[in-house]
Design a binder for these strands. Structure first.
Lengths: 350, 350
DNA sequence: CTGAAAGCGCTTACAG
DNA sequence: CTGAAAGCGCTTACAG
């Protein structure tokens, strides 16, 4: 912030001469950890000078000197995905409360973009990373963590459990969804899944299978073609496919809310109604899911809390001096929120 | 990124000795602007050394030296407000394309928080600001800009036109909304407005008044109590008030989509239906407004484009060496998107 | 075309 | 308790 016209900020050196002390003394006076080393009267003089000159530490200079920037890189697929605003807010509130600032980057789930973003954030000197872009097999992230860089994974995790993470009980949440459908009398249930490179997709599929198996129901493998992306369009495509494969289908469990919305479209397209003919359940409870037509039954978890927890985990890691503390994994609870996209299985179709 | 266990990054000095040249030469070789000063063979050697050592510039050090961080501060009320994800994405894509990184901060529309955030971003050495938090009277921002700091305002602007801005044609958009209602036969129309400290609220109210006046309609001042916040809850409170004041009301123009949603609730609460009894129009065309029940008629503008344009404007400002270039103001077009929350005025109520 | 020097604004052992 | 010195990793006039 010192362009041609900008008023130059005052420096520590200026504060020192204004207060009649050495710059080192000003530095000590201003750092809470060393403040008690300085004489009360000197401290007073320094503080007065700081006030007079409206001095504020140049964090760039401090970072260069201390090798700590109090900055963390946050890497997410896309802030436009309705899952992320709350999550990012939780993250930043958590970081902010302890003096960290976040630099956020978007990857659109493109691995090359991700690498490039991580590299750039490293050049900017971030102290660590929070990543929401993990793939099931992810050598890049494993390497990053192995290098000793502080990393915590969020929402998605890698196959190995070497990197700390905050995730959701994807398996349990989806199992609850299927059970609810079964209680409503549904027997022909399809899963509209996310790309299998994502841990969330795998766990949700597992939960689906487990619940079906436990009810003695067959899951048609063909009715579970995985998506190429977690989008509404893919949800529509897969929903359409599922409806074609099994015209007697009465319910769909989608891997997330966006895909559930796509299923709404596929159902309408087929001349059917939700929940009259086909029930739909999503995952995430994205903002305004209660305002959809029909209001969406979905698996809720605390997006904000997830971000907040990840921030806490990273900060703790940043503070411990251990080279490689053992990775902790936090798994958040889910809660099935029953709204109006699910209903009893229609007698003639079920 | 150099914690206890982290592999230390190589430095320019190391690259230099590896290549057998002076550090200054490496610096010149790596900077596109000075690269042509270095001998082709030397350049090759430097590049090889960079590759061998996996060298990457330490941006912190560079920033300290050059007084440019290629970083910009983005200050918004709350990323959780559905208007912002796309806007921020446009902003960051625009900035990113020209090598800038953004640091984003949230203020929750709290002035003290805003000042504190701006200060912190300044300490982090941002080259300029993009601010979505302007108030109609905003001495803080005026002062910031007057100091010579590069600032561009987005979505909202201040009373003076001293600070460059990218906004929407709030007035015209709202006028179009009212006209549409009038064409549908509505005569008793209320405005559910946002807080008057916001330029958007003022311009939208103006547009409302202008369209009513031009149709020879009276606007009941009492039916336009301004809100304390731009939230769904405030929309509901004000919608309820409007309905109580004029039980014969047949339409509401809300200052934004969130408030329109609140009006849906107020209407339902009163035992009325939308659009059967009361039509509602929002502003913004937030994501999923088309999936609401009923799908919301609203005034659309290009959120992403707004962010992108603001990024371009700031970067241009950062590149010109003028101390105070004249402030440009870009005003984006709006488009009324007619969906199902508006219908003909009901005969008995109209 | 390249090197040597100075310095951006801080912090932190090291003396005293 | 305070000062003087060195240095974090770069860039950029200034010489040559």
């Amino acid at each position: 912030v010192s362009k041609p016209g900008a008023t130059p900020r005052s420096t520590l050196r200026q504060v020192a001469s204004h207060a009649g002390v050495h710059p080192a003394t000003v530095s000590r006076a201003l750092n809470p950890e060393t403040r008690q080393l300085v004489n009360a009267d000197t401290l007073r003089r320094v503080l007065a000078a700081v006030r007079d000159l409206d001095y504020r530490t140049n964090e760039i200079a401090r970072s260069l000197r201390t090798h700590r920037s109090f900055t963390v890189g946050v890497v997410i697929p896309d802030i436009t995905n309705p899952l992320f605003p709350r999550l990012v807010r939780g993250l930043e509130d958590g970081l902010d409360a302890v003096g960290y600032t976040s630099l956020v980057a978007y990857t659109d789930d493109l691995p090359e973009r991700e690498e490039e973003r991580i590299r750039r954030l490293q050049q900017r000197g971030v102290d660590g990373f929070i990543l929401a872009t993990a793939r099931h097999k992810d050598p890049t992230l494993e390497a990053l963590a192995a290098e000793g860089v502080a990393v915590v994974l969020i929402n998605r995790r890698t196959a190995s459990d070497a990197i700390p993470s905050v995730t959701v009980d994807d398996r349990g949440g989806t199992r609850d969804a299927v059970r609810h459908l079964i209680e409503l009398g549904h027997r022909r249930i399809a899963h509209v899944g996310a790309p299998s490179r994502l841990s969330t997709a795998r766990a949700r599929l597992e939960g689906f299978r487990a619940a079906m198996r436990e009810a003695g129901l067959k899951t048609d493998a063909g009715a579970m073609t995985p998506a190429n992306a977690v989008t509404q369009a893919e949800g529509q495509r897969l929903g359409r496919l599922a409806l074609q494969r099994d015209p007697a289908l009465t319910a769909i469990v989608a891997a997330n809310d966006l895909m559930a919305l796509g299923c709404y479209d596929a159902i309408a397209e087929a001349g059917l109604r939700c929940p009259g003919d086909v029930s739909v359940i999503g995952f995430n409870d994205m903002p305004f899911a209660d305002r959809f037509d029909p209001p969406l039954t979905t698996v809720r978890f605390d997006h904000y809390g997830m971000g907040h927890a990840a921030a806490g985990m990273l900060v703790r890691r940043l503070r411990t001096e251990e080279a490689t503390p053992s990775a902790s994994h936090l798994r958040l609870e889910t809660k099935l929120v029953i709204r109006s996209s699910t209903g009893p299985a229609p007698p003639r179709r079920g």
